[in-house]
Each structure stands twice: as C-alpha cells, then as structure tokens.
C-alpha cells in the first residue's frame, strides 16, 4: 500500500488486508468470507482506487480475522490477482498472492442441472478442474460444463 491509500483508512493492528481485488468485487469478497457486519469485526472497504496492475482495484481490511485455506481458495476464484497481507501489531508479517487451486472442490455448484453432482441425496461434492486463470474458467470433472468467472461471482454472491 502506498501513501495515498493511507489517506482512506488507517492501518489495522491485527488482521488481514486483501489487496488487488478487481474493482467492484470487495463486497463479494466479504460475502464469501461470510462477513455481514453483524459479527462485530471492524472492516474497511476501499473501492475504485488506482492500481498500476488492475487499473482500478478494491481493498478490504479486516481487523481481527485471519484467513484459512478455504477462504483463500474462494477469494482466488473471484480475485485471481489478489494479495493477502497478514498483519500483526501493525506490521505485515506475511504477504502472499492467492493462487487458484488446480481442483476446486465443493465451493461452487455445477451449472448443468442434469450433472450427477447436482443429483439430490448423493454423497458427491461438485468438483472442477481449473482450465484458465485470468479470467478464471473452471470445468466440471463430471459433466464437462464450463463455468466462467462472472458466473462464479454471481454464484458466490447469491449463495449467502
């Protein structure tokens, strides 16, 4: 983060900063993390700031929350270029880029209604193969249906 961004929100003490989210997807990121505001977490959202990499980007800062692997996987599907900063005592103790997993299991649903992964009462989790990263494109391993980044955003936004 540069000095200009510092103008928008002050630094957090302990928690997570998710940077380089495509502009307009900050709220979706919060939604897939299950953060509605009622949890009492202190959250700062910065939207549509200039970024050399993305043109415009969003940033999300969450005080008092660290992400687990599944959280990071989900974020990678709608913000494949995001970076995650782990903050402890005002210092960045770890910084990494999200990386979409090669196999995405259970997070999103296959769009094909006659896919076996959609059959009710079966012990089966939807499973997708990553076929492209930017933009994200997934293919159902069961039926071969392709799901685009926009469809993924739509699904992850409407599910919660």
């Amino acid at each position: 983060m540069n000095a200009r961004e510092g103008l928008y929100v002050r630094k957090i003490k302990n928690g997570t900063v998710i940077d380089h989210i495509p502009a307009g997807r900050a709220l979706t990121v919060l939604r897939i993390l299950g953060i509605s505001g009622k949890e009492g977490l202190r959250v700062a959202i910065v939207m549509n700031v200039e970024s050399s990499r993305l043109g415009l980007k969003d940033i999300v800062k969450i005080e008092g929350k660290y992400l687990n692997e599944e959280d990071v996987n989900k974020i990678s599907l709608i913000a494949p270029l995001a970076t995650v900063n782990v903050i402890k005592d005002y210092e960045v103790v770890k910084k990494f880029k999200v990386k979409p997993p090669k196999i995405v299991e259970g997070i999103i649903r296959c769009p094909n209604p006659t896919c076996i992964s959609r059959k009710s009462r079966e012990p089966i989790k939807p499973k997708f193969r990553l076929v492209s990263t930017n933009p994200i494109k997934l293919q159902c391993i069961y039926c071969g249906s392709i799901i685009s980044e926009n469809e993924i955003v739509e699904q992850l936004t409407s599910l919660r």
């Binding site: 094909n112 006659t114 896919c115 076996i116 992964s117 059959k119 079966e122 391993i141 069961y142 039926c143």
Partner: peptide, 10 residues
C-alpha cells in the same frame, strides 16, 4: 447407463 452426465465417473 444413466441419464445424468458424469454418473459413470461417479
């Protein structure tokens, strides 16, 4: 043989 896609793989 099944009418759902992917049934055989499952």
């Amino acid at each position: 043989r099944h009418k759902y896609e992917g049934a055989a793989l499952f």
